[in-house]
Write a protein that binds this DNA or RNA. Sequence first.
DNA 1: ACCCTTTATCGTAAAAATACGATAAAGGGT
DNA 2: ACCCTTTATCGTATTTTTACGATAAAGGGT
Lengths: 109, 109
Amino acid sequence: MRSDPRDEELAKLTRALGHPARVAILRYLTQQKTPCCGDVTTCIDLAQSTVSQHLKVLLEAGLIERKGQGTKNCYSICVEPFEQLKAGIDQILSDHRTATQKQKASTPS
Amino acid sequence: MRSDPRDEELAKLTRALGHPARVAILRYLTQQKTPCCGDVTTCIDLAQSTVSQHLKVLLEAGLIERKGQGTKNCYSICVEPFEQLKAGIDQILSDHRTATQKQKASTPS
DNA sequence: ACCCTTTATCGTAAAAATACGATAAAGGGT
DNA sequence: ACCCTTTATCGTATTTTTACGATAAAGGGT
């Protein structure tokens, strides 16, 4: 099996989500009415440079976007990749379900 | 912010999914009518011990389960954590949507 | 009882992720 | 023009992940 690009894509997204600090950051970004700013740092008990690094990971995975606004940078969530992620998981689930179905059909109790 | 257990949980699941080989393994498990066996190895171009290790990661995250069947071990997908994962992502999405809504309401163009 | 297959685990090396402080670049305010 | 705030990036140490071969344990077949 030569790694499916879909697998790479799904892995890229999940890997980016695969750290509690990054999940917390995302949750924080949603909960702010003003979906912005690097004062994320003030609420997450990590050094500023570390937070910046986590933001970069999320950014490179496409899960968030940056809008430079003067000396401050505002981050906001990108909906699309989340939908894509859900779709990827759904596909695994539905594949599983149809396979299970088939199996039951061919092996009636 | 003291790491929310929900964040830990979501991170645990996504981290387990966060490797192309593991996504491929999961996909393989779904596509097998007989959702079983460690002949996963034969189709994934990784050493047997490496595959076993990846299976262990998936196992420990609860994404799959093992059924010992004689000398062979059969693995199958657990639906529940996938649903949980989807729910976690959905929550982030819906939080984001409601926040965006609120913002629009208070700042009419 | 013997061997052979299957597969988890151990030991280990190499690569990647994580965290930090320090520094630099970029803008705002006065 | 100056300084001060904000924040990305650099350098680096530590930990974790990833991959492999070798070994061991467990069962099936004859």
